[in-house]
């Protein structure tokens, strides 16, 4: 059974009197441990697809199954719990909390987990070590470079050891050398067993992936 199975996914938005069809019937199967990139031009629907995959954007039609769970049929706040336990997010703009240190930012997903504070610190430190920032635990985001901030964001995404890592253009704001480092890190995490689904503009990043999906006008044109 596939880890992620998307069937006939449609997402329509109302825009004034018009309806924008962001996704027009997408079917995807992703196996556990795969590294997938989603490519496409602006407005092709790739970011919408990632937000639907992330359980944050209810589809107009279709189903999203992850690890045997139909995501959008989960009751109440169970969807939030699913995100907390099984998904990790890496955002293009990092979205680190500016008043928290690198360590505290990484501990954030654990704030709602019943664990001893020492264990939380230890898990967050280990995640930061893993992304190569073990020496900058107490730095605030504005004291870190763009690449380092992206690494903190990745550490935050993996601190609770999720099965699936969703990344939205993680190299979009980085120079080429730092981009290479970040991609190498994501690849390493994938080799460690994490399934990675990444949206990217950059075709160079596809060489790290097992396969790429190309979207155009809300439809898959290439797998």
């Amino acid at each position: 059974m596939a880890l992620i199975e998307i069937k006939n996914l449609k997402k329509h938005y109302a825009s004034g009197e018009d309806t924008v069809e962001a996704l027009r019937g997408v079917d995807i199967r992703i196996e556990a441990g795969e590294f997938i990139t989603i490519m496409g031009q602006s407005g092709s629907g790739k970011s919408t697809l990632l937000s639907v995959l992330g359980g944050m954007n209810h589809p107009t039609e279709g189903d999203v199954e992850m690890a045997g769970v139909n995501l959008y049929r989960l009751p109440g706040e169970k969807l939030a719990d699913f995100r907390a336990q099984r998904l990790g997010f890496v955002f293009q703009a990092f979205h680190l909390i500016q008043y928290l240190t690198a360590l505290e930012n990484v501990m954030l997903p654990l704030a709602i987990v019943k664990m001893k504070n020492a264990e939380k610190r230890s898990a967050a430190s280990a995640a930061l070590e893993r992304v190569g920032l073990g020496a900058k635990l107490d730095r605030l985001p504005n004291q870190l470079s763009g690449g380092e901030q992206e690494r903190v964001a990745i550490a935050r995404a993996i601190v609770n050891n999720p099965e699936i890592l969703l990344a939205d253009e993680p190299t979009g704001n980085l120079d080429s050398r730092t981009s290479e480092e970040v991609m190498a890190l994501l690849s390493e995490l994938n080799r460690g067993g994490q399934t990675v689904v990444m949206v990217t503009h950059n075709p160079d990043n596809c060489r790290y992936a097992d396969r790429s999906i190309v979207l155009r006008d809300g439809l898959i044109v290439e797998k």
């Binding site: 706040e77 939030a80 699913f82 336990q85 998904l87 997010f89 979205h95 954030l108 709602i112």
Partner: peptide, 14 residues
């Protein structure tokens, strides 16, 4: 910030 909290799994009650 609140969007990040929600994305990483914080409940509405959190």
């Amino acid at each position: 910030e609140i969007g990040v909290f929600r994305a990483i799994g914080f409940r509405k009650s959190h």
